[in-house]
Nucleic acid binder design. Structure first.
Length: 496
RNA sequence: GCCCCCGUUGUGUAGCGGCCUAGCACGCCUGCCUCUCACGCAGGUAGCGCCGGUUCGAAUCCGGUCGGGGGUACCA
């Protein structure tokens, strides 16, 4: 049986250690898109989410929660896994120990596994003595006699179970890289468990993939050199009746940071959840990450997830490592911001406005109405959701709490600025109607025509006095929304 | 050391023997638009690691070389 006859099942299998990395997101995204694509255009297409928490020392509940939180934010729904369950439950390795021990016992009783009593020091010593260029285990305990075992046992040595690598070569057709071959003489027999019997990743990962009927393993290229071991193990699992096929493998390129190093936890750009805090759109981040190794077309790089699902082919993934570029990530995100409808953007901006304290939680009706009127002014000029707070704050703040940025005040409300503000006040105070066009006309007449100032010089001080900053939404519209009373009050205050 | 992977402008990519005097995007630089910012628009900048070979013809195929990365654990 080959995996291509099976309904497609892929998985993401993070270890809940530390804060989730953008590399994890990219891997999850490719798996997810692969599954959804097959759901739409082929057979099966199940996206499984499994938690690899066999390393009890390093796994944490916080990390687990962060990964779930991240996946929810990104909107990558999983068909089976934590919180949703599924026919292959449980989906946490810490809850599957019995399964591993069962398989381990089968392996140990078959010719595929054997007990090894060696210590690292002994292995290393033998390697030096023999002058072998191959590092790792030398197969010393492969064919121990009963007497030898008795001696080791009498010495009180502990033992582990090793997997006996077959002779010859192991070849697979990597979905991303094409045919890859390893001579097994360079792939030593490897440990399947610790001396205390705890199963190791080398066993647990492929066993779970086998037990869960995973058909396509798409993962980071760091796992590429462990693939021959897994392919060999699959051979054994098939013979032992644990599964009946070997999955296909595809090794995805790294996401690199500065220089030629993998993006590490030390790099601030590495932390996936930080993008949410910074006001990125999930579709913006995902779109950018998709671009790190894949392209939807020769002349386009902004697309929706739906379009990605339609177009995604694992064979199109580029095998070279990609550098993470924050600027481009921001640009892609900005493009998605512009794709949002006003309603949608308002809806998405709201939580950030609450966080920033610009509006209350729950939002007052009056604030909601004001926001609806104000969003059109900022929608075109923000590239991240968080930027709305800074631009809109002046509209929502209570007059008593309103303040002008000190640096901006110094630049714009000094000797040169005050007369301008005074003239603006006089012009606006006498205004009958309070609409954008009336305001514009009045200020134009008073400041540009009257004082003979260039527009940018004329409106700068007014902007700072009224919005508190040199950068703001369009001035006349802002004044209209602010209202006559508050506008005049602020101008007065700038003079006083 | 040994094994494996990778190699197109600063960055991400398109390219699968002629359509390539190498396309697109970000960045950067010039302008335009303009009440600030942002958007938008027009233009510019810069690349097939190197050497051989195959071929009428190579970024594309082959060999070598150099460079980078990963693995080489009773980590994952």
């Amino acid at each position: 049986m080959v995996s291509s006859d099976k309904p497609v099942r892929v998985r993401m299998a993070p270890s809940p250690t530390g804060s989730p990395h953008v590399g994890l997101v990219r891997t999850a995204l490719y798996n997810w898109a692969f599954a959804r694509h097959h759901q739409r255009h082929g057979a099966g297409g199940t996206f499984v989410f499994r938690i690899e928490d066999t390393d009890k020392e390093r796994s944490t509940a916080e990390s687990y929660a962060a990964i779930i939180d991240l996946m929810r934010w990104l909107g990558m729904e999983w068909d089976e896994g934590p919180e949703v369950g599924g026919p292959y439950a449980p989906y946490k390795q810490s809850e599957r120990e019995d399964l591993y021990r069962e398989v381990l016992a089968k392996l140990r009783e078959s010719r595929f596994g054997y007990e090894c009593y060696c210590t690292n020091a002994e292995v290393e010593e033998r390697r030096k003595a023999s002058g072998s260029k191959v590092m790792g285990y030398d197969g010393y305990c492969r064919n121990l006699t009963a007497d030898q075992v008795a001696v080791f046992e009498a010495e009180g040595r502990s033992h582990i179970t090793r997997f006996r690598m077959p002779d010859g070569k192991i070849t697979w057709n990597d979905l991303v890289r094409g045919e890859i071959t390893f001579e097994t003489e360079f792939v030593p027999d490897y440990a399947l468990c610790r001396a205390n019997g705890d199963p190791l990743y080398t066993l647990v990962n492929p066993v779970d993939d086998a037990l869960m009927d995973i058909t396509h393993v798409l993962r980071g290229e760091d796992l590429l050199s462990s693939t021959p071991r897994q392919v060999a193990l699959y051979g054994a699992l098939i013979e032992l009746g644990v599964t009946d096929f070997v999955p296909e493998f595809g090794h995805l390129p790294y996401v690199m940071g500065e220089g030629n190093k993998k993006l590490s936890k030390r790099d601030p750009e590495a932390h996936a959840l930080a993008y949410r805090d910074q006001g990125f759109l999930p579709e913006g981040l995902l779109n950018y990450l998709a671009l790190l190794g894949w392209a939807i077309a020769a002349d386009r790089d902004v697309f929706t997830l739906d379009e990605m699902v339609d177009a995604f082919e694992i064979g199109d993934v580029n095998p070279n490592p990609a550098r993470f570029d924050l600027k481009k990530c921001e640009a892609i995100n900005a493009s998605h911001m512009r794709l949002l409808s006003l309603e949608d953007m308002t809806h998405r901006v709201l939580p950030y406005l609450k966080d920033a304290g610009v509006v209350g939680d729950p939002v007052h009706d009056s604030d909601a109405q004001l926001l609806e009127l104000a969003m059109p002014l900022v929608a075109e000029r923000i590239n991240k959701l968080t930027e709305a707070a800074g631009m809109l704050g002046f509209l929502f703040v209570a007059e008593d709490d309103f303040s002008v940025d000190p640096a901006d005040a110094e630049k714009m409300l000094g000797e040169d600025g005050r007369p301008v503000v005074q003239a603006a006040y006089d012009a606006l105070a006498g205004l009958h109607a309070w609409s954008t066009s009336d305001i514009q006309e009045a200020l134009q007449t008073a400041l540009v025509d009257g004082l003979g100032l260039k527009p940018r010089v004329a409106f700068g001080p007014v902007r700072v006095a009224v919005t508190g900053r040199r950068v703001s939404p369009p001035l006349f519209e802002s004044l209209e929304l602010l209202g006559r009373e508050r506008s005049l009050g602020r101008l007065q205050r700038a003079l006083g």
